[in-house]
Structures are given as structure tokens and as C-alpha cells.
Design a protein around this nucleic acid. Sequence first.
DNA 1: TTACGACTTAAAGTCGACTTTAAGGCAAGG
DNA 2: CCTTGCCTTAAAGTCGACTTTAAGTCGTAA
Lengths: 147, 147
Amino acid sequence: MSQLTISQVARQVGLQPSAIRYYEQIGILLPAQRIGGQRRYDASVLHRLAVIQQARQTGFTLDEIRELFFGFREAATASQRWQRLSRRKLAELAELTAQIKTMQRLLQKMMECCHCETLDQCGKGIFKKGFAEVRAKSLSLNRRTGR
Amino acid sequence: MSQLTISQVARQVGLQPSAIRYYEQIGILLPAQRIGGQRRYDASVLHRLAVIQQARQTGFTLDEIRELFFGFREAATASQRWQRLSRRKLAELAELTAQIKTMQRLLQKMMECCHCETLDQCGKGIFKKGFAEVRAKSLSLNRRTGR
DNA sequence: TTACGACTTAAAGTCGACTTTAAGGCAAGG
DNA sequence: CCTTGCCTTAAAGTCGACTTTAAGTCGTAA
């Protein structure tokens, strides 16, 4: 009775069924029990998915989430696991913030100081300053829909 | 004489030749003059690429860069173009910063307050709080090498 | 019996910004 | 004449997190 189908689970956690199949495929959800070929879940999968969603919300990749579940010695507690991964992620986010700030400063300065008529003129200025400074570790900020 | 080959240009601006071909293909660089089938450039392409690199560094996508060059009435000055795009980008970056802060707060709180033994226990807690709050507009922070 | 709805799988498609690969061209030097 | 080195093109591959598609299966209700 408390056996849920994949789309019932999906609805409860706000995911598409395909996402749940994908999670199983890449090994962050254990293969579900099948009945007549179809997946059946009990409530524990909701907790598992809650952890996954929480981790996604805080910026973890699916690889990191796999690490959360399987990258520790058996005896490690949940809070120990979160500690280690969170510390790392906080450092990443701090670096990301720093890079965003750099962008903001550059944009501000350009808005204030650029009085160029043409983009070629503008480029001439940028080129002379040896603009190729920070290039090495810039990062792209890709948006995602989330649905 | 002051005609540059594609890899000379690439070296000067810190790009791969393939990136320059790609820029031509998607229309943010105009097709170059050919000599014996090969692209030849003069110094003006360096300015153009300097603008492109500057824009990339400040978080613009290639679509936005195309807009910078071609999305304005002919008479618009460079500084007007930068103003409009920069204003928009600054707003985006501010939103991004806000989302990062949300992640940081969540991570901090979890590091301080989670004393769970097991991840299932942890998920039970998250699940009960109706965790599916902000899901709608989260974004992923994908890194890129930059080389 | 047949239609329906919900499920299954494997494979391919999506997005952005490129890179890599395969197959070939062209000019200069030995 | 042939090799070397740099160039050309079109097409396919990469990464991450999925979604979409195509073709098929299962149980139930009419």
C-alpha cells in the first residue's frame, strides 16, 4: 500500500520521473524493486531524494552527491559527511563570489569611464593595456531553468 | 606585411585558432580576407578580439556579444552600447550573488546544526520541512577551464 | 478483445563555447 | 619531386544534468 510508483515519488519531491531514472542510472539512487517491470518505492526514497535536493540547492554536483553517499568509510556519520563537503563547497562559493566581484568592478569602471565613440576605438584601448591578465581561470556562469 | 595569419592573431590575444574560426562561424567576427584559401588579418581584428575578450571576462555570453556589435542602431556609440549591456549584466550578477549567499547560509546552518547520524535521518528532517521551496529558479554554477 | 494509461528501455537530443578529428590544400625548402 | 608545416572545411565530440523520442510491456476496464 505504501508502495509508490515513480511518478508519485516524482510529484512528492518536485522532480520529473526521468530525473529519478537518471539518478538510478548514474548510481546515486539504488536500483528500485520492480513489480511487473515497474519501479516501486517506499518512503525511504523520499528521504534520500530530500538529501539529494538539498545538496543540489546548495550547489553540489551529482558527482559530489555520490561522494556524500558512497565516498566515506561506512561508519562516517551524516554530519561528518556534510562537514567535509560543505567546507569544500563554501570555499568554492567564496572563490566564485570573488570572481563575480571582479566582473562587477570591471563593468562599473567601464560604465563610468568609457566614452568611446566606436567599439574599435574601445578595443584599441583595451588591447594596449594588455588585457589578457586573468584569463587563465575565469569561469562561466551558466544558468539553468531548474525545472 | 602587417597581414597576420590566424595563429599569429590567436597567440596575440590568447585564444586557440579554432576559437577564432568559431567566432567567424557564429558571426561575431566578420569573414576574413583569404589568400590562397587562408585567412589573413590586419591589426583591427586585434581590437575586435580585445573587445570580445573583455566582454567574456565580464560575464557576457557570445549571444550578448553579438548584440553588442549588431544589436543597436548603426549610430549608437560604443559607450551607449556598453551602458545598456552592462546595466543588464550587473543586475544578473547581483542576482547570482544573492543566490550564492542563499547557498552559503544553508551550508553554514547545516554545518552548525546537523548532528544526524545517518543520511536517512537527515533526509527525514529535510523532507518534513517541505524543502521544495526555492527550487524553481536555482541555477547551476558550471566551471570552465578558460583555456 | 481491445483500448488506455502508465510504465519500461536504450539511444539520441539539448544548451554554450569551444575542441578534436578526418581528410585534404598550398607554398617553401631540400 | 617530395616532405614539412601551417592552413582549410565539415562534422562530431566534450561536459553536466537531464529531457525527449521511439518502440515496446503491463494491468485493468469496457
